[in-house]
Design a protein around this nucleic acid. Structure first.
Lengths: 187, 187
DNA sequence: ATTATCGTGTGATTTGGATCACACGGTTTT
DNA sequence: AAAACCGTGTGATCCAAATCACACGATAAT
């Protein structure tokens, strides 16, 4: 649980007693490659904090095409957040691409911890603030940029993922076809 | 200031004393049509809570094309949030489309109120949660949908804006050309 | 060892939407 | 009242990226 504490304390310092309380809401889980943490149609009981490994949060349209909403690596949170927050059914899948470990916790954990510990509400607010800004940048990119620019932005932001993730999946994240993406760094 | 109180208390009840404290950070401002609240390059000192009127948050690319990141109407918050949170220069404009009034406050206000009043930190967390989910839906739409589907989703979500805002601007929000949008409901 | 499957590159063809161009009625301006 | 501008529709053309198709080496499966 030490990494959990460190992760939180980068934003919100906690006493030992407080961290014990936090800790009690989180469970550690090992995840194998190709394992799914969430499937479309599931109740989304948990959100996940990645300790290690790589994951993709994606959905599938009626024609079977896949679109990646989020990658996740160490230190990132992930879930089908729409379903998680509204406690509805998943419209997305979460798949493990590289084996690793995650912490998971319920919405109740988030809400109770936020209520009982002002520090934890602060922590979640700061995380959401960062996530909000990151998503807004993504929206701007999707609205106005060429495949070229999207690829460059991705390479700048996530050089590590560029190495570890098949290009096909990067294309699914960028909203570009596999072939077009391939031609970007060839030409 | 009554509408401000009501707006906050939908999420986080406050005592009179607490609200006084909150209130002291907000200022009311009348806004005329075509008035700009933020210009590209500005220091973004404020975020805005809309009381009335309609506003657009947009940016302009190197070719002069405009893209709308957000519309805002009564009860919505707006700013160039990336610049606001990071206290950097604006990359966007905020323009008033229909005259009205806004409250505004600084980042300091948000941070201090969050620190001093657990309730306010809760309020902001809930707002960010909703904003995060809404943005994620937008990302999904931009990634996978046709102009047709985007238009339909917009019409479903914001039937009022569809009436009050020129189609050209709706096209800029959807990431579609004016002409294509026009042909959607003709065909 | 041989056969699938996966990741990737690359050519040929198609196509949806952007762009360009113009029309026309409704406001606002002078 | 004439002139300029705005919002909107619509036809013609163009083009960037999707789609279709195939190749080929590398990894995984039988």
């Amino acid at each position: 649980m030490a990494p959990l504490r460190q992760h939180i304390e980068e934003i919100a310092p906690l006493t030992d007693a407080e961290f014990d309380q936090v800790q009690s809401f989180f469970t550690l889980k090992k995840v194998r490659k190709h394992q799914y943490l969430v499937n479309e149609g599931d109740e989304v009981k948990y959100e996940y904090l990645v300790l290690s490994g790589i994951y993709r949060v994606f959905y599938v349209d009626d024609q079977g095409k896949e679109y990646i909403v989020q990658f996740a690596k160490a230190g990132w949170w992930m879930s089908d957040y729409e379903a998680f927050f509204k406690q509805g059914k998943a419209s997305m899948f979460i798949e493990c691409l590289v084996a690793g470990e995650v912490f998971y916790a319920t919405l109740d954990a988030r809400e109770q911890l936020s209520k009982e510990l002002h520090q934890m509400e602060h922590f979640f607010r700061v995380k959401l603030t960062n996530g909000y800004v990151a998503q807004q940048q993504r929206i701007k990119l999707l609205l106005s940029s060429t495949p070229q620019q999207r690829y460059e932005a991705f390479a700048r932001l996530y050089p590590d993922l560029l190495q570890q993730v098949p290009k096909k999946l990067i294309a699914e994240y960028l909203g570009v076809s596999r072939e077009t993406l391939s031609r970007l760094y060839a030409g």
